[in-house]
Amino acid sequence: MDIVKGYEEEFNQLVDIYEKNTEDKSLRNPAVATIIVSGNKVVGLNSVKGMHINSKVRGDGLVIIDVDIEDNTVIPIPVHLCTGFLKKQGEQILKFNYMIGNNVKVKFKSHCILTKVEKLHHYMESDMYIGKNSHVVYEDEHFHDERGGVFVETITKMKIDENGYFASKFYETKTRVGRINVVMDIELKDNAKANLESKIYGREDDIIDIKEILRLNGENSSGIATSTVFATDSTKAHVINEAYGNAPYSRGHIECNEIVKGEGVSVSTIPVLKVNNEKAELTHEASVGRIKQDQLETLMSKGLTEDEAAEFIVNGLLS
């Protein structure tokens, strides 16, 4: 691990918080490729064979990180991307550029550690290209401050080349959201596949916006986008799932489940399906409302209280 001189303390603080929240000790493991960003600076970097990471900080504080993975590279241990902010307030702007070659297999584990901030705007923009026959998994988990002063924006644009595969999991379920805006816009070429899943738990006056777009441009391409939001108290949540069937035999499915519990909750979902090729096929499923009565009563008939049953159901949904 290459810890940048002068930033050892910040590095250690972030790693300690991460380990406390996850019990995962990977960040100090020299065999694990790692990028650790604190505020507007890179404080730790570790690469592995076939992977090249370059970072720079622009004068206005924008942190730019380029991740290139060579053709035919298989990275057996997940690559860790850790972004944190240790000051009480401010702004963190990050730009990730991923260039993933052909026949690559890699998994990224991203974590945003924003547990100590009163007021923060965290903006992360990612551009990712996934080469032919490559297999990429991206898991993104967030840990925010419980006072709700965090505003996270994460905007991802992606192109998946022929036979490529991408799966993402975006989870913000363990801590308060604050305000969050997630956008994923994915273009798929011939035989490419994508599977997007987001799960967010809103509390108090959290604001949640999710937009997932599948552009099925390649023949036989397919994609699934599933969003699950559990909105409590006076959470506001708005989910838009879009799928465009632009090529023959392209198939897309979008699904949104929003479960509400609380008098001040306001949630909505808008599915958009557009077929531009007669051989494309798109479907959607959506549900907005309280936890299903038959689920609650099934568990209550086994001795759980209504609150225990609801917690059990929600924990399953958000797991």
């Binding site: 299903k292 038959d294 008939s301 399953g316």
Partner: peptide, 9 residues
């Protein structure tokens, strides 16, 4: 239950 409920996750 005649038709038991399903539970995701």
């Amino acid at each position: 239950w005649q038709e038991p409920a399903r539970f995701e996750g």
